[in-house]
Each structure stands twice: as structure tokens, then as C-alpha cells.
Amino acid sequence: MDARIEQVVTSGKLTLDDTEYDVENNTYIVGDDDEVIVIDPAFDAEAILEKVGEREVMAVLLTDGNEHRLSVVLEVAAAGEEDEENWAPIALHRADRLLWRDYFGRLAREEEDEDDAKALRSLEPDIWLEDGGVFEIADVQLEIVQTPGHTPGSVCVISEQLGVLFSGDTLHRGRPGSIGGAFEDLRKQLNSIGALLDPLPRDLQVMPAQGDETTAGEENARWESWGDMAREDTD
């Protein structure tokens, strides 16, 4: 098996509900010497594409539809190709379609050229992710698991061959994932995390979109203790 995982750390500011947060993001590049899939690009497309190099980007997977991902996703999908027909497909869960439409709709309203504005309004992901869907790259499979809560369409990506879970902002080391400590629907997110972790091998590596790596066993052991956070979040 020639597949490998490479990581690019980028940082920037993200505004949610009129509050600005400083965010550091892990982008993962999965593939071999010829082809890759990019998971969760954010903030700095140039740094990500520098790591990709001359390899072909076969798909760009977004584990949620928050703005820091959408702001670079077209540039990463294009990977220097001017002809849109040669761009890599962008994949997002349909439940985050509103986040997508809000972001590109806002760009369209700021665009002076009406043709460009129309193009932005008509943009859609090329692939709607579904629970159980599978992508293949370099002879390994990447399986999609829907984990709503952080956003309605949040997903995680599991590769049994690589022994890894890409947990996006659903799950971080030692805590449920968040942007600046703010949660969209923590109860639903915790339910998703519990259902996700319970059947997984305890030594499975967890690679989140923020922070350090961990294992499924470590986070499964912590999961019940997070219930107090959910109660406080609803009080």
C-alpha cells in the first residue's frame, strides 16, 4: 500500500454569529505520488497546494460547510487548472447546503460583474456526501460517516486500511469539537460522537481538524464526562 497521509496546518480568523475567532486548521492530504484527496482545506490554499505539488487532486472533501473551508475550496479544487472541467469535484453533505448558499450568495452580492455574480449564485458542490459513501484513493477506501451537531451536515471520514479517523470539527482531542468553544447543537454532537466511537477499534488514530491527534479509545473513555457540558449549554 503506497497511500500516505500528509498534514498542512493553516490559521486565520472565522466569524460565526457576529463573533470573530482565531482558528488553526489541520488539512489532510491522502494519496500517493500521483493522486490525492484533500480533506478540509482552510485559510491558505497556496500552502495546501504547495504540499500537493504536481499530484492530481481527485476530490476535495469538506467535513462541514463553515466559511473557512468554503473560502479556499474553489482554489484547491482548481489546483492551478484554468478549465473548470478539469477541476476536482467538491464534496459536502447536503444538510450544510444552506451554509454553502449563504457564503457564495454573500460573495455574489459583493460582485460587481453580473455574470460573475450569477455564476457564484449557481455554484453547488459536485458531490453530496452520504452516510456510508466511499471514496477510493491509492488503493485505500475513505468511508463517510454523518455526525451532525457541529453543523447539520458534519461528517467524519474513516479509513480502515490507514487505521485513521478524520474527525473534522466534530471531535477534537479531549473534547467535542468547536469553534472558539461555541457549539451549534452540543447534545446532537455528543450523540453523534458516541455512536461514532463505540464500534471503533480503541487504537484507531483520530486526526481532527484542530489540535493534536488522539485515539478512539481515549476519546470514548472521556465521552460520558462531556454530558455536563451539554446540560450547561442548554441552561
Rank of each mutant, 00 (worst) to 15 (best):
V73C: 11
E213P: 00
V206R: 01
S225Q: 09
A88F: 08
A230Y: 14
L190C: 03
T15L: 02
D17F: 11
A47M: 11
E35L: 04
I5G: 04
L123T: 04
D32Q: 04
L204E: 04
G177F: 06
R109I: 05
T27Y: 03
G181H: 07
A216V: 10
W100C: 04
R222Q: 15
G180F: 10
A59P: 03
L61E: 10
S11I: 04
C156W: 01
I179A: 00
Q141R: 15
E160H: 11
L197W: 06
L162T: 04
E110W: 08
S225M: 09
R202G: 02
R173E: 12
D203K: 08
Q210V: 05
E160C: 01
G12T: 09
I39T: 09
D203A: 13
D185I: 01
M207S: 13
V8A: 11
D102A: 06
T15K: 10
D198H: 13
Y21T: 03
V72I: 08
R175H: 10
G153C: 00
V9Q: 12
S159G: 09
E136Y: 02
R222D: 13
D185W: 06
T151V: 13
A88P: 02
I179K: 00
L74S: 09
G153R: 13
L197M: 08
M58W: 00
N191T: 11
Q7G: 05
A230V: 15
A119S: 12
Q205N: 11
A138G: 06
C156I: 04
K51S: 12
F183H: 15
D18Y: 05
S159P: 06
I39F: 04
T151W: 03
T63A: 12
R94N: 05
L165F: 06
Q205F: 07
V157M: 06
T147K: 01
W100K: 03
G133S: 12
F43S: 13
I144R: 07
D113L: 01
V134L: 04
A47W: 04
A79P: 00
R121L: 14
